[in-house]
């Protein structure tokens, strides 16, 4: 095990992770993300690829490191997103619940403050989110949705690129516990 991989796996001490976002930001930030997704792509269509609620879920889960809280946070964001879509409520909820759980599990083993790790995780979770949503729509609802892997990979890269500055901004909102 090299020094780098060791640092990557162990990372900083857990007390550095004890930063928490204020409760108000925990509510306001997802709302802004959902509003952004609802309103902005209507005027700037190419921004429709941005899945900000997912990035917010991933950021919360990576920072909180608590699977249970991440599960409920992902579920809440997903259900809010579901309620503004035309699909049955629960589709985004299930997917984001899983994303929250896995992201928090990963954060316990990797140094998620490393930008490269953050980029890879965001890319992976975007692909996982889209793919699992497609699986759920086909399996549970019987909808013949189209899954375009190339487009999803490209959008995953774009979302991961956006995630880096976004996470930096969100980290500024944290306060020391």
């Amino acid at each position: 095990m090299t020094e780098y991989t060791e640092r990557l796996l162990t990372g900083p001490s857990l007390k550095d992770r004890s930063n928490r976002m204020r409760m108000v930001w925990l509510i306001v930030v997802p709302l802004i993300a959902i509003l952004f997704q609802v309103y902005v792509p209507r005027h700037i269509p190419f921004l429709s690829y941005l899945e900000l609620p997912l990035l917010i879920t991933v950021h919360f889960a990576l920072g909180r490191r608590g699977p249970i809280s991440s599960v409920f946070y992902g579920m809440a964001i997903g259900l809010a997103q579901d309620s503004l879509s035309h699909q049955p409520i629960g589709m985004f909820g299930i997917v984001k619940t899983l994303v929250g759980y896995f992201a928090s599990s990963v954060s316990q083993r990797f140094d998620v403050q490393n930008p490269i790790v953050t980029f890879i995780l965001c890319f992976f979770f975007y692909f996982f989110h889209e793919f699992f949503y497609w699986v759920l729509a086909r399996a549970l609802l019987g909808q013949a949705m189209i899954f375009n892997p190339e487009q999803t990979l490209l959008f995953g890269l774009l979302n991961a690129a956006v995630a880096l500055p976004l996470f930096h901004i969100l980290d500024k909102l944290k306060v020391a516990a």
């Binding site: 249970i68 579920m75 049955p88 409520i89 299930i94 619940t97």
Partner: peptide, 22 residues
């Protein structure tokens, strides 16, 4: 397996919600 149990409960609850709607 507390974390996994919570995850399963949440997922199952949402699946039931989906099933009810469908």
């Amino acid at each position: 397996y507390r974390n996994l149990t919570v995850l399963l409960i949440v997922i199952v609850a949402q699946l039931l919600l989906l099933a009810y709607q469908v």
